[in-house]
Structure formats: C-alpha cells, structure tokens
Design a protein around this nucleic acid. Structure first.
Lengths: 248, 248
DNA sequence: TCCTAAATAGTTGTCCTACAACTTCAGGAG
DNA sequence: CTCCTGAAGTTGTAGGACAACTATTTAGGA
C-alpha cells in the first residue's frame, strides 16, 4: 500500500514520532477499522503507511500491546485484542476523567464546589516534595457523565511557578488544559486503589446512599520526575467500569 | 565496562532475549543495585554488559518503564523511579498473588475451602468461550500473608484438555504451577475492579466485620488469545496495597 | 484417499551502523 | 553574578540485513 498517513505525523510538534503513531493507530483501532481478533497490517506495511522507520512502528505497537488493545505474535502478526466486546478506557492510561467519559460516549460535566488557596497539609507537602507551609490550590469537584454524578474529586496543586491565568484556568476545572498552558502536563502517575465506605465523602443529590466508593489516591509526575499534583478521586461504585490489562 | 551478564542470557531457552534481560534488570533494580532516583548505565553500556544489541536493551527498558520501575528521559538517561520508598509489585503485572505476597516479604499461605468439578455457569461459560454445560473445576480459597487472611478467591478452569495430574495440582492450590505443567501459562489478563460491601463473601475467622472488599474480576488468556481461567478475588480492604502506574 | 513430513512464504525478533534530537554542564562574555 | 554558547553524553529514529518463528502449501508414502 502507499503512504497514507504521513501528513498526520509531524516531526516538529515536540511529541515523539512513536507517540504520534500510537495515538493515530489507537484511534483507528477504537473506530473498528479492523474487526476484533483480526490481523492488522504488518510492521513493514505500517512503516510505509506512516512514512517512519520500522523501529518507530514497533515502539508504538509495543505500547498499544501493553494497553491491551493489540496482541503481537512472533512469526504470525499483530492482532486486535478480542476481549469479548467493547474495549473500554483502561485505568493504566493516564488521561483526564472527563476525556475518558467523552471517549466512552457520554457527555462529560463538572461542578466545582470549593476552590481555594491554602497551606499544604502534611501528606500533601510530602507527596509534592514541598516545604511545609507552602501555598497550594485545592479543588473539590463533582464529575458527571450525562448529568449523573460518577465521582467526587479532591485535588491539590502547588501554586509556586504557576501564573495567575493558569491558576484561574485550573480553578475553573480544566486541569489538563491549565497545566498544558503552563507546560506542565503530567506524563506519569502513581495511583493507590482502595475500597471505601464513608458518609463523609461527597455532597449533594449525587451522593450515593450506601457511601460505597472506589478511591483512587494519585500523585502526578512530570517528565523529569517532579510531582506536579496530588489528589483523591472517589468513584461512585457501579457508575464507572474500571479495567486493567495485566501482563507478564 | 566489560561483558558481565552474557552468561545469564540464553539464546535457546524459548524466552525472548529482551524478556530475559528485563527479568535480570528487574532483579538488579529490586535488589537496590542503584539508589532510587539515580541514573543507571546507559543503553550502550547495558548492551555491552549483556552482550546483546541496543534494540534489545531498549525493548526491555521500555517494558520496565511501563511497570513503573524506571524512568527513561530523552537526552538524559535512565533513572530508577523514585516514588518515595520501595517500589512494589504493581497491579498491572500479572503474577500469582502468593508470589506477590512472597516478594513483599511475607509468608504466603493458602487454605482451600471448596474444590469441585461441576458444570459451568452462564457467565463462566461466556468468559471462557465454552459450550453450555461444560465441565469446569471450581475452587474457593482463602489466601494468607503471615497467617492473616488477605483475600478470598473464587476461581474456575475448564477441565477439557487438562490431565488428571494437572487437575490435582490445581486443586491443591498451585494454580500457576499446575497450568505451567500443562503448558498453559496465562500471559495476559483482563481485570475489572469494584468496591464491594457484602456479608456473603468470605468465611471463617478472617472474614472482615465490615464486609468491605476490593473485588478483582479477572479472565486470564493464553498467548494465542484463548481464555484459560476466570475468577473473582476479594481483597480485604486495608490488608493489601494496590498500586497502578499510569502513563500516557 | 488419508496422513505425515518437508518446503515455502510471510511475520516478528534481533543485530549493526549512522545520524537526529534532546539534556546537561562547563566555560566565556557581558 | 547572570546569561549565552558550545561540547559532550544520552535517548530517539533511520535503514538494511538476517535469525527465529508461524502458518500454509506441497510432495511423498502408507
């Protein structure tokens, strides 16, 4: 086949070629360009389609394999993973919750309940490697899908080094957009998972009666390893399906 | 530096070179050969140490990065991930629970409560791609760390194609060992995570009073994509720390 | 005819060399 | 002291070659 997607790949965007190829391939897979379980074009063919080297394709494919989207078999080919239906957003892909909700086909919304600048707490300071007493921005938000509350989120950012405009954008709820403007997009996060039953969490009409949540306790990191944000997100049990692809 | 670990790598073991290098590097990291946050030898140096090509080293390093053990920075080097302490087995690494417990430094144990061969249920048959009415081996076990119950596990295997010896080994509790003997080691699993509060789950003295569990609903797959096992594991909240490394 | 084994084509895994892009640090100019 | 520049070191990408593996086809024998 000829070169199909060379124009989709930019060598001056700051994003690595393999990351761009991965994103594009990911979209093609999620749009069902190939049936589940079927074979996708080989590495040589893809390299020619995107106008990049085979190494670059391999890097992208390896990454998609780890995400559970495809299945690379030595000597045979690359297959779309068939897990009996729709491939949902996996928990190990780092992206904003609202983006995930949109990808699942729902209308994502957000209601900010609290937005304040205060001193960092003890664990917050430790997680963010801040000296005690540093100023942080603290947000409390409810996240909705099709107007239904699916999670309550408590997030904290160090204000040092952030412009007033960025802080305002963060306060309005666009976390990833705000951090992106400040050129501080997290590329990695460490998340602890807990089952929580509590009446203290949540507020308003969307608060579940049984108080049952899946808690995600996260710290976000920049490319250079520095922590940039921390927070607890409480997902209302049953409103959100979490999937992890586990590999050796 | 000279060639240090060439003898650790076998070209006839069936396991790919990059997988062998990854395992070996993983051990070196977990044994704290390098401090957390410090730089490990570069790709050229590692390639020379193991007597393999740089591509092979890169594949292994990429994999370790996904597991959250290291941190690859373009133009700078490879660093041991520093997440404020010991890096433990993450949830997205597929390995037996008992193995994980051992790696964490505890004494792993197991008490089988039920072990029977019966007909597959509806969802079991669907998950395992079995015709209705197929025979399956069903196990109910309590998993302990230092004699304390940390999880209750309900697992199911199709009997067809398994030898009597293998079934006996499975019944005794050594899941991965039993499947390994039958040459049916799962290499991939799809897990759904839920927070559960129930009095129906668990038994005996280790059953938590609040009935709060983190449920892992899994289906295990072979390399060729065929499902080989399914099961629900209920981890007693607070007894086990789950960590996920999320990346873009 | 049926089954088995060998040849064959196609695909991923590894190797090699070279250069591009990026990070870091040292040294000099202001 | 601060800022800029350049050099050295490291990972990212390129391209070509062969090895190892898989799946299919073909040839041969019972």
């Amino acid at each position: 086949m000829s070169i199909l997607f060379k124009k989709e790949i930019s060598r001056t965007s700051g994003e690595s070629l393999s990351d761009q190829v991965r994103s594009h391939l990911r979209t093609r897979i999620l749009k069902h360009e190939w049936d589940a379980g079927s074979k996708i074009p080989g590495e040589f063919e893809l390299a020619s389609q995107y106008g990049v080297a085979r190494v670059t394709i391999r890097t992208a494919l390896r990454s998609l394999e780890r995400q559970g989207l495809i299945d690379i078999r030595h000597g045979s080919g690359v297959y779309v993973a068939d897990f009996g239906g729709v491939v949902r957003a996996g928990l190990q892909e780092l992206k904003s919750i609202t983006e995930t909700i949109k990808e699942l086909g729902f209308k994502a919304g957000m209601v900010t309940r609290t937005s304040e600048i205060r001193q960092a707490g003890k664990t917050e300071a430790a997680d963010l490697l801040l000296p005690q007493g540093s100023q942080v921005l603290h947000l409390e938000r409810a996240i909705t899908a099709d107007r239904e509350v699916v999670a309550f989120s408590y997030d904290t950012f160090p204000v040092d080094g952030l412009s007033a405009a960025t802080i305002k954008k963060l306060s309005s709820g666009s976390i990833f957009a705000g951090l992106g403007e400040a050129n501080k997009v997290p590329v990695r996060a460490r998340a602890e998972i807990h089952a929580i039953s509590s009446k203290e969490i949540g507020w308003g009409a969307g608060k579940p009666r049984n108080g049952l949540y899946l808690q995600l306790r996260q710290v976000h990191y920049l490319r250079d390893g520095k922590p940039i944000a921390t927070g607890d997100t409480y997902f209302v049990e049953g409103k959100f399906q979490f999937i992890i692809h586990r590999t050796i």
